[in-house]
């Protein structure tokens, strides 16, 4: 029950979905399975919230360091949950005004909208904006030309950084469109930074990324097969679980 049934479930589900690519009859089954998959994904949000709740409550009851912040998290969690589920400040759908619960839970002006707009948005956007500062500090401290590979990386980064801004025009905009040697060959303007960075992206980054993609695709395919055939059972965890 603990191991055989899950292995069977995953194998049947996986092979039915693989079958959708080859057997038309499986298509409808595959779509049903995807609809259920999406529902489980929504329940995963609830599981995530529940886990957070559990952890924060444990922190508070054990009075661990920073338990006050755990309490703040819980208050923020419950208030947001309440205003979202109760549709606080939301009007009904104008087509069906007598159905008070028919309105959009994210209606502009509603409490849940307010929380998103004025608390979630600035907090999440600023968290990510901090990365600009840390990347600059990291560039100063860690981006060193220690060997050939690191030097290539560094030079390419500089060319692309300059080539993607107006600096390329200032620095290399004056390069004439004349051939360096012979007719119809390479011109001076081919060495403009914006052109160089385009070449780097199209002709050097693309093959590098393509090889990585091919490698990942083979990795995903083999891992998937291992999971479906029951060779890889790591997702089941240990037998010691309660």
């Amino acid at each position: 029950m603990k191991r055989t049934v899950p292995l069977l479930i995953s194998a049947v589900t996986g092979f039915v979905l693989i079958g959708t690519a080859f057997i038309p009859m499986f298509e409808e089954w595959g779509n049903d399975a995807m609809a259920w998959f999406n529902l489980l994904a929504a329940f995963a949000f609830i599981l995530g919230g529940g886990n957070l709740l559990k952890m924060q409550l444990q922190k508070i009851s054990a009075q661990q360091a920073g338990w006050g912040y755990a309490a703040v998290t819980l208050i923020a969690f419950f208030v947001t949950l309440f205003v979202g589920l109760a549709k606080v400040g939301v009007h009904p759908n104008a087509k069906f005004p007598e159905y008070s619960w028919s309105g959009n839970y994210l209606e502009e002006g509603g409490a849940f909208w307010w929380f998103f707009e004025y608390i979630f948005t600035p907090l999440s956007a600023t968290m990510f904006a901090l990365l600009a500062f840390y990347i600059s500090s990291a560039a100063f401290r860690a981006f060193r030309a220690k060997n050939t590979e690191a030097t290539i990386l560094l030079i390419i980064a500089v060319i692309v950084l300059l080539g993607r801004t107006y600096a390329s025009e200032w620095l290399t905009g004056g390069f004439p469109n004349e051939p360096i040697f012979g007719e119809g060959g390479i011109t001076y303007s081919d060495f403009k930074l914006d052109h160089l960075s385009q070449i780097i992206m199209d002709d050097f980054t693309t093959p590098g990324m393509r090889a990585i993609k091919i490698g990942i695709a083979l990795g995903v395919a083999s891992t998937s097969l291992k999971v479906l055939l029951g060779v890889d059972r790591s997702y089941l965890g240990s037998d010691q679980e309660a």
Partner: peptide, 20 residues
């Protein structure tokens, strides 16, 4: 801002390497 920040970043990389 992108232009100025890129130039700053390149300067930091250069400075970091000079120190190195």
């Amino acid at each position: 801002p992108q232009l100025v920040a890129h130039v700053l970043l390149i300067s930091l990389i250069v400075l970091g390497n000079v120190i190195y």
